[in-house]
Nucleic acid binder design. Structure first.
Length: 257
DNA sequence: GAAGCAAGGACCATTACTTCA
DNA sequence: TTTGAAGTAATGGTCCTTGCT
């Protein structure tokens, strides 16, 4: 009953901005790596399952005007038919009767979970180390025969294994980003502190007449001058800087203060 | 060559079952 | 013995590519 999926969504959203996100080396070069899909459509990764009814078959429904359920059910039936056919052929390939007995049990509640043996898991892991995807098809068939499993089971195992790998990597990346964030926060705090100190130092070293409210006397960061002291120094010692020299921190977002 | 369609494969989110503390 | 959490096999949906017509 794990809520891995939900957690994963938020993590993926965070990491979609991170170019270091693990690209699954899709040995099947026909398919795009998953990250390419996630990266540019974070809303998709956040969508709940109910929000996903907008593509493929469902889109066709809206065109035809019929209820989406009708078409989707029909398509599921077609798909199921296809799967049954492939499973039938797979059964012919399968050399063990063990699996077929399980299938009979399945008819009771629709799904019974097979636990892979240690040896099977080890062999699958070994295969996964070599290639994270089953390519070509022959490999799946061979592996299935070797493990005395159905090809579909091998396929599913690889899918789940890839998902697990990705989840682990995502968690690692997430930890790394958290650490980065902490470091940046500390750096930010340090810089703010430093700035305050510099400001205080500046005020204490200025002659008393310079210690006027900032609104009346402001230093221009570009020319480092306070007002126009050269021209009017004799008559008016203190003047507010002319407009171009008046520093407005709000119109200059790059300024730290 | 372009368009439409079906099949197949990969990925994803989710479900449901098993195991274990 | 019960229960909740974690692990994981299995399912269903979507998207994309490929091959055929």
């Amino acid at each position: 009953m794990g809520n891995h999926g939900v957690c994963n969504k938020s993590i993926v959203l965070e990491l979609s901005l991170n170019s270091s996100m693990v690209e699954h080396n899709s040995t099947n070069n026909t398919n795009k790596p998953c990250s390419s899909r996630l990266k540019f459509d974070p809303s998709l990764t956040l969508a709940l399952s109910g929000d996903r009814d907008h593509g493929g078959l469902y889109r066709q429904d809206s065109v035809s005007g019929g209820g989406s359920s009708l078409i989707s059910v029909a398509s599921v039936c077609v798909k199921r038919e296809r799967e049954v056919k492939s499973e039938e052929s797979e059964k012919l390939i399968s050399t063990t009767s063990e699996v077929e007995e399980d299938d009979d049990d399945n008819s009771v509640n629709g799904r019974k979970k097979l636990r892979l043996t240690k040896a099977q898991s080890v062999l699958l892991e070994e295969a996964f180390k070599h290639h994270s995807t089953l390519n070509p098809q022959k490999q799946k068939q061979e592996l299935a025969r070797e493990l005395k499993l159905r090809p579909r089971q091998v396929e599913v195992w690889f899918q789940n294994r890839r998902a697990r790998t990705k989840l682990k990597q995502t968690e690692v990346d997430c930890e790394y980003l958290k650490k980065c964030c902490e470091v940046l926060k500390e750096e930010n705090t340090r810089l703010h502190k430093e700035l305050q100190e510099l400001k205080a130092l500046k005020l204490s070293t200025q002659p008393p007449y310079m210690q006027l409210p900032a609104a009346t006397l402001t230093m221009c960061p570009s020319c480092k001058r306070i007002g126009d002291t050269t021209s009017s120094a004799t008559t008016r010692p203190f003047t507010v800087a002319p407009k171009p020299h008046f520093f407005n921190p709000f119109s200059n977002p790059s300024a730290t203060c």
